[in-house]
Simulated assay, not measured.
Amino acid sequence: MTDPLRALAPVTIDNTTFFVDEARPVAVLRRTGQPDRVVSWPRLNVGIHHPQTLLHRAGNALWVSYSPWDSTSDERYPALCAPQDMAAVRIGLEGDLGFVQTAGTKILGVTNEGLWTGSSPFQAIDEDYHGGPEPSGYAYPDTLQLHRPGQPPLSIEFDRHLFAVRQRGQSIEVWLNPSPPITHPDQAGGAGYEYRLTRIPLPPLNSIADALRFRDLVPQGWGEPVSEQELEQLEEEYLEPAQGDPGLIDLQGMVGTHWELVELSAVQREQAIAAVADQFSSLEQFWHDSSGEALPLTEGLSDAQCQVVGRWPQVQVVVDFHHPHYPQGILRRSFQVFDEAGRVHLHSYAGINLMEDLDTGDLPEPGQAKDGVLRI
């Protein structure tokens, strides 16, 4: 029996190639002519929510970041309304590990100096701004932070919304929005929005001020714009799972290659199950038309049932119903409420995703049913 590493897209820095598991706290470093090196971080605290894993390439290290895949601010489940934690692992070229944890921030990028975050997730809209000079007194505060393992963060206050941080040769530059988005009203009563994006070289870090103003750096105009090509390259940096096979990397018998269980209270477990199951509690009365009549999630759905099976962390919400796609039996969709570490996986929009699959017919063939149940 094998225990294969399921790698995200491999990343090569100098002559070291990194294979990071898409769900587990483990990476393999490979160099030609040398044995593979395995590193892991099973005790890293990434919060109570199932995380999204992203890779970030610097010139001297690979960063692996973890942020909540889905979380909630729903007042019905207050025990799950945890801060938006972010944790990151820095893997050096020799396999040395460093760790960073922060809350309420978004990742702007990585450079050789470390990992950069901003405090403002979105750029605010000003419906009255249609171009030209920025509104009098305009400012949109954001906090730039540089995180380095084992050191307190370096903080710099900006008066503009920050979009990204990038290494450009020997210098570091920040990409920011110098003005509100330009509002373009349409004839239907809506609007489109055009975003300016400017690059600003940062002063040397050993002499940088703790606050920077855009107009002190760019007295007139909007500065050097970021090109569309650069934006496309930025999107490509957030690497998706590999399409190719790096060859079998067998982790069988290796200690520390699985997450340790998190601590969840009984209330958190109960509310996590409820948050998933409640999405399917009224599938036959999911919508209401203009007259108030209740309608099912999708046409033809009937006799829906939702049950919870298993014990933490192996808990599933199982949804059964009848549907014309398989009239002689039942359709079933199951949801794992917790991941292997016991963290909460809310499956946001699971009901809508089910509706789309039923409406489009994106379903297994009825011939794949077993014992009168077609798992979808």
Rank of each mutant, 00 (worst) to 15 (best):
I182H: 08
T183G: 15
Q187S: 10
Q187W: 10
G189I: 14
G189W: 11
A191F: 14
E194Y: 15
Y195C: 13
R196G: 09
P204G: 10
P204T: 11
S207W: 10
I208C: 13
D210K: 10
A211P: 10
L212V: 14
D216V: 01
D216S: 08
L217G: 05
P219A: 06
Q220G: 00
G223F: 07
G223E: 12
P225V: 02
S227M: 02
E228F: 09
E232L: 13
E232I: 15
E232Q: 12
Q233T: 07
Y238R: 04
L239T: 05
E240W: 05
A242C: 12
Q243P: 11
D245E: 14
D245N: 15
P246F: 06
L248I: 14
D250M: 02
Q252F: 05
Q252Y: 05
G253Q: 10
M254V: 13
T257S: 00
E260A: 13
E260D: 13
E260C: 11
V262N: 02
A266V: 08
A274H: 07
V276Q: 07
W287P: 14
G292W: 04
G292S: 03
A294D: 09
L295W: 10
E299W: 02
E299C: 04
G300C: 15
D303C: 08
C306V: 15
R311C: 05
P313G: 05
V315G: 03
Q316D: 07
Q316V: 02
V319Y: 06
D320F: 11
D320V: 05
